[in-house]
């Protein structure tokens, strides 16, 4: 008696359990590749998201309309400026992964053969949810505000090398997570907000395309770490830095507690 999104979630859980079981067996040997360590952390973050009460409310269809709309706004704000972030990552990419990052960036901007700018898909989604032009403006303002805050904050890291690594890990974590949840999210938004497939195109891209991106992203991280000479300990510290809290929950599920999470 469970609807498609819920089945999908069980699949993800089963997959996560397997990953943790395997990584547990390996118990951090010195030789463990950066890729495995990174993916383990991605998995922990995803598990945190899937276990959070708000996600469960959204995913089960139990949440109120207000929560779905707040979630859509957060998601749009989180990804609207990804072309800019990808451009930054492209600028710092070592030669070995620059081409992949460039392709990813152009695709995000709609400058590839497909010609669909992803930010415009996000704004289409916001409109289809009834957020209107006012809502779109609000989302754009938030996304730009986040960027400018990032530029004005005192840097906690020593050089651009570290900052670039942190950004690469965070962006990759989202691609990785979306490649496993985009279909689920599209499913619960379709049912709960009555959206049509066209409104949900952004999720289609991130479910299908990002399976490839997500795998590439892990290679990019490994490349970056090797090319800039990060030691195993430094990689560990960088991961602790990026994941000092659950970044998925922070970006997607943080809204004023007054928001109706009740049906």
């Amino acid at each position: 008696m469970c609807n498609p999104p819920c089945c999908k979630i069980q699949e993800i859980y089963a997959w996560l359990n397997l990953t943790f079981f395997l990584s547990g067996l390996m118990a951090y040997p010195e030789t463990m590749s950066a890729r495995i360590v990174v993916e383990k952390r991605f998995g922990e973050q995803l598990e945190g998201l899937l276990r959070s009460p708000r996600w469960r409310a959204l995913e089960s269809g139990q949440a109120g309309r207000g929560l779905y709309l707040a979630f859509v706004e957060n998601l749009c704000a989180a990804h609207l400026c990804s072309p800019q972030i990808l451009a930054f990552l492209y600028a710092l990419a070592p030669p070995s992964s620059a081409a992949k990052l460039r392709e990813n960036m152009l695709e995000e901007m709609g400058l590839d053969q497909e010609g669909i700018a992803h930010p415009s898909l996000l704004l289409d989604l916001a409109r289809a949810c009834g957020l209107g032009e006012e809502g779109c403006a609000r989302v754009q303002k938030r996304a730009r505000g986040d960027l400018s805050r990032m530029c004005m904050e005192a840097l906690l890291l020593r050089t651009l090398k570290e900052l670039g690594f942190a950004a690469l890990v965070e962006v990759s974590a989202f691609e990785w997570m979306l490649s496993r949840t985009a279909t689920t999210i599209a499913g619960f938004l379709r049912v709960s907000l009555g959206l049509n497939p066209k409104a949900l195109l952004w999720f289609h891209h991130h479910a299908e395309v990002d399976v490839r991106h997500a795998a590439e992203a892990l290679e990019n991280i490994e490349d970056y770490a090797a090319s800039y000479g990060f030691s195993k300990d430094e990689i560990g510290a960088m991961l602790d830095f990026v994941f000092r809290e659950n970044i998925f929950i922070r970006r997607y599920l943080d809204f004023p507690s007054g928001d109706s999470s009740q049906p």
Binding site: L157, E162, E234, G236, A237, D240, R244
Partner: peptide
């Protein structure tokens, strides 16, 4: 790990 994070900063 906390100490290593401080060192990173």
């Amino acid at each position: 790990r906390q100490a290593r994070l401080l060192r990173l900063m």
